[in-house]
Design a protein around this nucleic acid. Structure first.
Lengths: 218, 218
DNA sequence: TACATTTCTGTTGTATACAAAATAAAAAAG
DNA sequence: CTTTTTTATTTTGTATACAACAGAAATGTA
């Protein structure tokens, strides 16, 4: 039997395009509410319309763009109500994630997560916003994964993606950042004690507080 | 000013195709795990490959099909673990839905929901499975809507769609049906009293019991 | 000038055509 | 025979071409 090369996950063109456009949206290069000019983007990305449109359909199903039949697509614009509804759901999703993680994660996994937390704290002390932010994302993502619930991971990352730009502007004021960090310390403690209820509660509360912070700026 | 015709939501071809294929999957005409033969279905539906493939991408994002690059698409097959994870998440989603509905629904909306419940009970007494089942779906959908949380509605209906076929085989044994109905009576009571906590708890419990019923048959 | 109607232009939706890849079938080597 | 290699066929991925539609501009009418 012939041993082939490693089975590298093949990327089709529309998948690549979907990722690229998704990033453009998340990172704010495509403004919410603005029309997506097919011809322009197709040219910029160097692909034909077929894979591009397929990618758009994917992003539409993910809730990042809205396709208006015969009238083109626009980057989905989130109303304050949309954001509230997302955070409401995300809060319960993360609560469940916290509870399940405490039940199901291995000791090694927990300490890996605590390590992420500690690195976050280091960046906080040095007022290093961007790496803090990135580790923060990672913390929540990894925690969700520890729930060993693929559906939870999927829903969490989907909502997370939609909110990404909002959350970025969230922790602007220094006091907000302090509060967020206090929440995270509480999470770490609960995690260390494997206190699922406590961890879940603080995860949910953390997101409710996020909402209070951003509600007026949306 | 000229009054145009009613702004009927325009349906593009790929949307129609997506709906049709979705129904084929949900209703079991396309077996889980089986390959989706593009040429065959395209012919059967009388459309070209372009809108069909766009529809597939939508269904893939919804989690109903899996696209394997260069190897065609298959109807997603749910493992027992997938189903468990969906019910775990759905339970918390519906719990939240129950809580919020009690807070936010109008009296009229509540009584409309109770009416659905009563009709369900009537079908139960007459052992009319199909209409009972349909009203059951409707009950859960409407309840989610009363939460006034569009994200919750979206997540709920997405998971609901993926599970639809599973749930159908769920209430097979007569005693199972009796148990499910007991749960629903409890829901109605809690709803009437606007006891969000109680309603949420029974909604979640109801789904945990669903899992216990189906876990061995998957 | 204001409004309606028509023409035009750009954009979107769908079909078809071609290229690349994977699978199946056939031929050759051991 | 069995296994490998080659060849053919089918299926998927992408590009292009054409048709349908929406919105803008232009023309006409009151």
């Amino acid at each position: 039997m012939k041993i082939g090369p490693a089975p590298i996950a093949k990327q089709t063109l529309h998948d690549q395009v979907a990722s690229q456009v998704r990033d453009l949206i998340i990172e704010g290069y495509l403004e919410p509410g603005s029309r997506i000019d097919e011809t322009e983007l197709v040219e910029k990305l160097g692909v034909s319309r077929t894979p591009f449109r397929e990618a758009l359909r994917t992003l539409a199903a993910e809730g990042l763009v809205v396709i208006r039949p015969s009238k083109g697509s626009v980057v989905r614009k989130l109303s304050a109500d949309d954001v509230r509804s997302m955070l409401e759901v995300l809060a319960e999703i993360e609560r469940l994630g916290g509870v399940l993680a405490c039940e199901r994660a291995s000791a090694a996994e927990v300490s890996e997560l605590l390590d992420i937390h500690n690195r976050m704290m280091k960046h906080y002390e040095e007022r290093d916003r961007l790496p803090y932010y990135k580790l923060n994302q990672l913390f929540h993502t990894r925690l969700a994964e520890l729930s060993q619930n693929p559906t939870l991971v999927e829903v969490q990352s989907n909502i997370q993606a939609r909110l990404k730009r909002i959350r970025f502007i969230g922790n602007q004021k220094p006091t907000d950042w302090d509060d967020a960090v206090a929440d995270h310390r509480e999470m770490a403690t609960a995690l260390e004690l494997r206190d699922g209820k406590r961890l879940g509660d603080i995860m949910a509360l953390h997101l409710k507080r996020t909402w209070d912070r951003v509600r007026d700026s949306i």
